[in-house]
Amino acid sequence: MESSLAGEQQRILASDWGGGKSPFGTSWSKFMMWIFIISDALTFAAFLIGYGFMRSISPEWPKQTQVFNMVLITFMTFILISSSAVMAMAVGAARARNPKLAFQFLVLTIVGGLIFLGCQAFEWSHLIEEGARLTHNPWGVPQFAASFFVITGFHGFHVFSGVTILAIVAIRAAMGKYSGDQVENAGLYWHFVDVVWVFVFAFFYLL
């Protein structure tokens, strides 16, 4: 019995979890970015589940296609997915030690983010003009506009933060003061923003 216990101890010490090795096989900064993304994903999960709960208990829910401009929403989705693809290419260029190309891809990603924010500002101002507020709206239950402003507002703030982070990384890339890890971490955040929008697009606008 004792020998099998000692054998088990030896096995654990020799494994990745025995100390002196990284069990996750990543740099500390990338691992911290993943931990941040996981915690942020829980926040959005809570928002979307709260929205689902409110929608389920509401006697009626406005038809999204009658409230939102779906052509604009689809265009915003296209822009965010495209910027995510360009961001992946920026990471590839940074890893291949091509700062000029990485900078160009980063600028394109930033432009995509700015277009998305512009479309969102347009959509918000249009709905506010029509009378949508956090506490009431012309289409029915007050929870409809409240969910809309909270979920898209929180996501929009993430897009704004992402654009700011990408601008800093792009400036550093242009100055030659960058590392593949920095570009990749910024990229992970940007892809996460895209993932959240995929959920918002499906569950808020389409369902």
């Binding site: 069990p23 996750f24 992946a88 990229g187 895209d194 995929v198």
Partner: peptide, 19 residues
């Protein structure tokens, strides 16, 4: 998106599981 853009398919199973 996670597998290709975020390169998760090349990460260790430990990291994939916590995501």
């Amino acid at each position: 998106i996670a597998a290709i853009f975020m390169h998760l398919r090349y990460e260790r199973i430990n990291l994939i599981l916590i995501t």
